[in-house]
Simulated assay, not measured.
Amino acid sequence: MATTTDAARTIAALEARLAALEGACAARKTMARYMALCDVPSGALDGESLASLFTADAVWEGIGPQYTSKFGRIEGRDAIVAMLARYLPPAPHFATNVHFLTSESIEMVTPARASGRWIMLQASGYVDERAELIGARLEVDFVPAPDASTWLIAHFRTERLFDAPWRVSPRPAA
């Protein structure tokens, strides 16, 4: 026969599992918003901004042979958003840019932190009419927002795995 103590332990275990699932879901949503806001044209909704996805003291860094020298380590929400803005409209960089995430693994979900890994495929067309496909590994740490309604990026790491030029076919005339 189950005791009150057993029932309380079961409820506590279920609450912890639910919190972990909700944390993983919130982290996944934050990554999806980040990628949509980095797409060109943007998948942003009115009032959304990249700044709302990062903690005030967030770190964004390029790692590995190609991205350490290209991006380095950027600290603080404002510095991160300023760096990302160099690649987004109205800056003349991408004509089109689409991000795809795969091989997701969200782990270490506690009430205070979650860590996730993805493989990102980025299809980019540039304003100078070049185009390339980029593969990168992302490792991202999240923490709950102060109001606990969303989770924020605390540490974003990206490592380029490969890049390949590709040809963008012109659109047929209407």
Rank of each mutant, 00 (worst) to 15 (best):
L121D: 11
Y126H: 04
T150A: 14
V40S: 12
C38S: 10
D147Q: 02
A8P: 03
E139F: 02
T102D: 05
A8L: 11
R113I: 13
A13C: 01
A19T: 07
L121N: 00
A131K: 02
T3R: 08
F54G: 12
G72T: 12
T30S: 09
A112T: 10
A164R: 15
M83C: 11
A114T: 07
P65E: 09
G135I: 12
S149E: 08
A145T: 04
G64E: 04
E107N: 11
E48G: 03
D147L: 03
I153D: 06
A32T: 00
P65K: 09
T102K: 09
R77M: 10
P41R: 10
T55N: 13
R117Y: 14
V168F: 04
P165S: 08
M1H: 08
A20E: 13
A19R: 09
G47C: 05
G47D: 04
P144H: 06
V59Y: 04
T5P: 00
G72R: 08
D163G: 14
N97Y: 13
R77W: 07
V81W: 06
T55F: 01
S105F: 06
D163P: 09
F100G: 14
A8M: 12
R157P: 07
G125W: 06
P41V: 06
S105P: 01
Y67H: 14
S69N: 03
W60G: 10
